[in-house]
Design a protein around this nucleic acid. Structure first.
Lengths: 462, 462
DNA sequence: CCTCTTTTGTACGAACAATTC
DNA sequence: AGAATTGTTCGTACAAAAGAG
């Protein structure tokens, strides 16, 4: 090509040809890793390009990390790197690591997709909604865990824009499938779930000669058993963390309370009966020491130490009892008329404005895959949302309560906070009033009046 | 310069000359904003440079935002921009916004330094230490609030590397100045502080004909008053959130307990006496309803509603009572032998690896400035660490308890958690055992044995 | 340590393409 | 339509550094 002037118009063709040829030769191994490419002058001769142009081409290959430019020496062919590393950030609730064996899951994910690195970290809770939005705005968050209550805060036209629409996963339990939809769009996928259940100390029951709780139990049955257990074992016969928003509202659910229902007098009666029953479960025990639980975790600790014979808890919390040497089993919570319990669901959501949406969805897909869901099923006591995985039958490597599968028989009793016509923030506001009632400082009637005032400011939700 | 070949060696001199000249002419206004610079060819002629070189020079000025290159048109002189906008991230404890009027402070900061934008957000707490380190690693955090307990977790050779050394602020209270030092290096600056204090409902005291609490009060005096107050007003005469790590350890402090002290029997006696007194303050009230406080906030709510006549709280928490119409004042907490209370200090720390360390320090400097500290003094009931600001005398725009300045008289009684020879994590571990004791499920002796075992695994701290 | 060769890196001036006005 | 200006490439020249002997 020397001597002849190259056509200006063919420049791009010539340059692209050189780049493509070199790239091919490198990836095909024609130029081995470590080898030096021909000099710029040579390449220029060969492809009819000026030195400057060849340099630009090499610069591009260097950015692709196919070669490494050594200043004043030449261009060395690099060892091929599978793909560009992507880093995504996964924001989690505090206990998820234990409840879902997150470390193991992420390790498996990374083994499968080495090009994606997942960094998990704790999300600030309380308030979840506003802080998580802030995190998404700052691109600090690609994927996050989100329970049903928190999801409801994203269920408005503007707020739902924060969350990426996701494909549904066939094979998840049907009662979970509609939870995280808004305007027909699935904005989070149910990942793990648990109803609120009763855990009981099996040794205590045996020693006291009591038959174990079953689905026929009413709260009266529980109280009777609790009295005997307390007398025999010197701890709480039954205990639960009353102020928790995942506990006391269950009594409202069991009484069929619905905010804004037609018959106001009937709702009032249900409300008052509920909050009195909540109190009486704690107060009217024959053994009733002072109790200062600050959280559900305190209750679980009490149970793990054998200081409470029965507690309200969840499948999630059973994971903490692995390390304790308490001999326990689980049962449905007692009923009033129709049985009911609260369903807690933890979903996964993707930041709609994530810069790595593809990788984020890859992670969600993996965490919902049969592989990951089976890992959760085998290595934790939480219930995966994939039916096939949850109902897996095999030899356990883990200590598991014998009635672990009990939840399958009580699915019709699963209820949601929104079945009360109340949002999470209503529940929080009502709790403040209930604290006074339970402390004996306010009459039930007066509490109902205050609650009515509080709720009037909002509309009922579905 | 035409015709004559320019010296290769003088190239940089010529290019720098052109750039410097143009920059001067632009900033001096010789080229007005909006005006077009001469063409590349003209400039090349003038400064003895090739077109390509002139282009590179203009590229540089364009990066400096002195000019704007309009493709195929020319270079337009830009309106001068004061300085490059910097964004720094401030991580806060949940209640800081209310306790320090953070919004107002940041607004004032931005007015003073418009080139720095501060974004504040909530830090995940529990565990603070590990999550905050993670945030710093990710460069999500330039400045953060940090209390004394949390600071102690950074007080090791490796951990302290996370925090930038800061200059001390002359004029801060002396008892604060050494708190945040490690190895003679100041790693956080005390910003606001509060001792734990007693708040009391003034109307209740008047109506019951009781004299108001003063520094001579013992816990016996408090109990006597509480009994009368409870009888007269039907709420708690006295209440506090016993399980809080900022409450029950005070009794240990007042009893002079020191972990690892020589006389083990004496320490045991002090420990047992302390935890029994904690319990008796709640249990042995003549009025003692069921109580379920989950946090100090619940106690403050009770007080704000007039359902508790006396509570343990802090200057910080007084900010929440602004909106309540309770008529209250404050006093030192009762004493045992020598008076003692717990000092809580919130400091500010800078991420040592922050990319905007200068701006971060600018913010810290501002938040400790007399201007900001006075704002805190005037607009909140928290105590700023700057003595001049804290002791400012002027007409209040805020409702302030008449004994606000009381803290100045009890400075010698301020103690630290570490005076017990215990770290925050020890306190948490001990609390778990105390819960059983307070619930009446464990004997004091047995608790002491367990605590001894727990503490043996650690060394005493100073 | 110095010298010579090779190669990269950078600048120049000219030519021409592309775009604006 | 055409003048002016920017933007891109080429061939050449030379400086700077690496590496061999």
């Amino acid at each position: 090509m020397t001597g002849k002037k190259p056509q200006r118009s063919t420049f791009h063709k010539r340059l692209d040809h050189m780049i493509a040829t070199l790239r091919n030769q490198i990836v095909s191994g024609n130029y081995a890793p470590g080898e030096m490419l021909p000099s710029i002058a040579e390449l220029g001769e060969q492809y009819g390009l000026s030195k400057n142009s060849v340099r630009k081409g090499l610069e591009l290959l260097s950015e692709e990390e196919l070669i490494m430019k050594l200043p004043k020496v030449g261009a060395r062919v690099l060892h091929p790197v599978p793909e560009r590393q992507i880093k995504i950030k996964l924001g989690c609730y505090k206990n998820i690591a234990k409840e879902a064996k997150l470390d193991a899951l992420l390790q498996a994910f990374h083994a499968k997709y080495p090009q994606v690195e997942v960094q998990s970290f704790l999300l600030p809770y309380d308030p979840y909604h506003t802080t998580v939005k802030e995190f998404m705005d700052n691109d600090w968050l690609d994927v996050m865990t989100m329970n049903y209550s928190d999801f409801k805060l994203f269920s408005t036209d503007t707020e739902s824009e924060y969350l990426e629409e996701l494909d549904s996963f066939p094979g998840t339990y049907k009662f979970l499938s509609k939870l995280f939809t808004y305007n027909e769009r699935l904005l989070a996928v149910p990942w793990i779930f648990s109803p609120v259940i009763l855990a009981y100390n099996q040794s205590h029951f045996t020693q006291s000669g009591l038959t174990e709780p079953n689905s026929s139990w009413t709260w009266e049955d529980l109280k009777a058993a609790a009295a005997k257990l307390a007398a025999d074992h010197g701890g709480f016969g039954f205990y639960y963390h009353m102020p928790s928003s995942n506990r006391w509202p269950i009594m409202l659910l069991q009484n069929g309370f619905v905010n804004g229902a037609e018959n106001a007098e009937a709702e009032k009666a249900k409300f008052i009966a509920s909050i009195e029953e909540c109190r009486d479960l704690i107060v009217n025990q024959s053994y009733s020491p002072l109790h200062f639980s600050e959280s559900n975790a305190d209750v679980e600790e009490l149970f793990a130490r054998g200081k409470a014979s029965m507690i309200l808890c969840t499948y999630y919390s059973l994971n903490k009892m692995q390390s304790a040497d308490v001999d326990y089993d689980i049962a449905p919570i007692p009923r009033r008329d129709t049985p009911a319990t609260l369903l807690l669901t933890t979903g996964l959501a993707v930041n709609a404005r994530s810069r790595h949406k593809h990788a984020a969805k890859l992670l969600v897909d993996f965490l919902l895959s049969e592989e990951a869901q089976l890992m959760i099923r085998k290595q934790t006591l939480s219930i995966p949302s994939l039916e096939r995985a949850a109902e897996w039958k095999g030899v356990d490597e883990l200590h598991r309560p014998s009635r672990f599968h009990m939840y399958r028989e009580i699915i019709p009793t699963f209820k949601l906070m929104t079945d009360l016509g109340l949002h999470h923030r209503d529940i929080i506001a009502i709790r403040r009033e209930l604290m006074l009632f339970w402390a004996g400082m306010e009459e039930a009637e007066a509490v109902w009046e205050r609650v009515q005032q509080l709720l009037e400011l909002r509309n009922p939700v579905n």
